[in-house]
Amino acid sequence: MGSLQGKTAVVTGGSAGIGRSIAEAFLAEGAAVLIGSRSQVKGDKMLAELGAGERARFLATDVTRQEDVERLVDAAHHWFGRLDIAVLNAGGVRQSAPILEMTDDEWQFELDVNLNHTFWGLRRSLGYMVAQSSGRVICMSSVEGKRGRPGIAGYATNKAAIITLVKAVAHEVGKSGVTVNALCPGLVVTDLVADRGGAGQGLAGVDAVVEKYSSEAATGRPVTLDEVASLAVFIAGDAASGITGQALSVDGGTAQY
Rank of each mutant, 00 (worst) to 15 (best):
Q5P: 00
Q5C: 06
G6D: 10
G6P: 02
T8L: 10
V10A: 08
V11Q: 02
G14Q: 08
S15V: 12
R20I: 01
I22W: 07
A23Y: 03
A25V: 05
A25H: 06
F26A: 05
A28R: 11
A28H: 10
E29W: 03
G30T: 10
L34W: 02
L34D: 03
S37R: 05
S37M: 03
R38I: 03
K42W: 01
G43N: 12
G51S: 09
A56N: 09
A56I: 12
R57W: 00
F58D: 01
D62R: 02
D62Y: 01
V63C: 13
T64I: 09
D68V: 05
R71A: 15
H78W: 05
W79G: 00
F80M: 13
G81F: 11
G81N: 11
G81K: 12
R82K: 15
R82C: 04
L83R: 08
V87N: 05
V87A: 13
L88Q: 13
G92Q: 11
R94F: 09
S96H: 03
D104V: 05
T118Q: 11
W120S: 09
G121P: 08
L122V: 04
L122I: 05
L122P: 07
S125E: 06
G127Q: 15
G127I: 01
S133V: 09
S134N: 10
V137N: 01
V137P: 01
I138S: 07
C139G: 10
M140E: 03
M140W: 06
S142M: 09
E144Y: 12
G145N: 12
G145Y: 12
R149P: 14
P150M: 07
A156H: 08
A160Q: 12
K167A: 06
E172G: 07
V173L: 03
G174L: 00
K175Y: 04
G177W: 08
T179M: 02
N181P: 10
N181C: 09
N181K: 03
C184E: 08
C184K: 12
P185Q: 14
T190V: 12
D191K: 15
D195K: 14
A199D: 06
A204H: 11
A208T: 05
K212D: 13
Y213W: 15
A217M: 09
A218L: 14
V223R: 07
A229F: 06
V233L: 04
G237Q: 04
G237I: 00
A239D: 15
A239L: 05
V250K: 09
G253N: 13
A255F: 00
Q256D: 06
Y257G: 00
